[in-house]
Design a protein around this nucleic acid. Structure first.
Lengths: 97, 97, 97, 97
DNA sequence: ATTGCGGTTTTTGCCC
DNA sequence: GGGCAAAAACCGCAAT
């Protein structure tokens, strides 16, 4: 192999390698950026929620209790599904279906 | 006090009481609704993020590692280095490498 | 079938049914009790572990880092190195150091 | 400073350093070992519990349902405390204490 | 057989 | 710093 040919091969190799790294690196970065952005928004919402709690606290509400209420309301929504699920479960366990 | 005046006072009292209850009850509900709504949105974003991880996994990336990177990028550089150093220190202290 | 014979049959049936219910009920309870007991012990050990972390923290160790070390030691050496390499790879891919 | 004195100093320094490293390294290892041991036991118990579930399943019980039962029993125990706690919480929220 | 998924436990970060 | 809520790792199951 001539010196020139060898050089070309090396370059070609490098290029390929770089391309491979680039495409996956690029892609990875893209995912990371999208995730970061959504995480940002999520964090923003968390802030907003915190602010509401703070505001409520400011007018005399007990934050901890409000949290409990929020949770209870969610439960009241989820609970139904949960209980239905449990019922189904037990029914199937006894061979009722 | 005449009967009419007394009546008025009672009514007034009731009204005030109701108003007080109303305003705080209303207010509390308002807070709860706002919180619920934001929580909903937050949950939606969490879903989106999960989807991205799934997508990345689909093209061969390691999700666990991506999560680590996300955290590292969020973390302050100095703090990150500190933690890394501390880990290395402990590792060498117990002969782990 | 005479009345007496029928009576006997019923009784026999009841007895069998009860026995069946008893044996499975008994058995189920036995399982539940054994599980409860073991869960108790497990919880106790979790407490003990927590205490050790607290103690270590008391003399100046960083709990978070210790946790990492515990995990690393549990992990197979090869797997550990693989993960570390993968992390380094991703880090360099996104220009993190 | 004579050569001998310098030597002694070095040795002393080394010794001190080693001692310091030793004591903390030793101590760290000691914590790690204790944790490991307890984790082992904990894992063992988890195994035992798993075995019981397997055994129950082997004689025809539905594992998922048993798990639910176990949880319900725990709740029945914990629930009381939980409810008491919640009561206290609301009481304090209303200024009753 | 492999991989996605639900649920459980463990870990981390946060607020008081 | 201690308790609490959110996130993440882990595990068994199921479905393909």
């Amino acid at each position: 192999m001539t010196e020139t040919a060898a050089r070309k091969a090396e370059v070609a190799n490098d290029t390929v390698t770089k391309d491979v790294e680039n495409v996956s690196g690029q892609r990875l970065k893209s995912y990371l950026d999208r995730i970061d952005r959504l995480e940002e928004e999520k964090k923003g919402l968390a802030e907003d929620i915190k602010d509401i709690y703070a505001e409520a606290k400011g007018v005399g509400f007990d934050v901890k209790t409000i949290r409990k209420i929020v949770k209870l309301r969610q439960m009241d929504t989820n609970k139904r599904h949960e209980e239905e699920e449990l019922l189904e479960l037990y029914k199937s366990a006894v061979g009722l279906d």
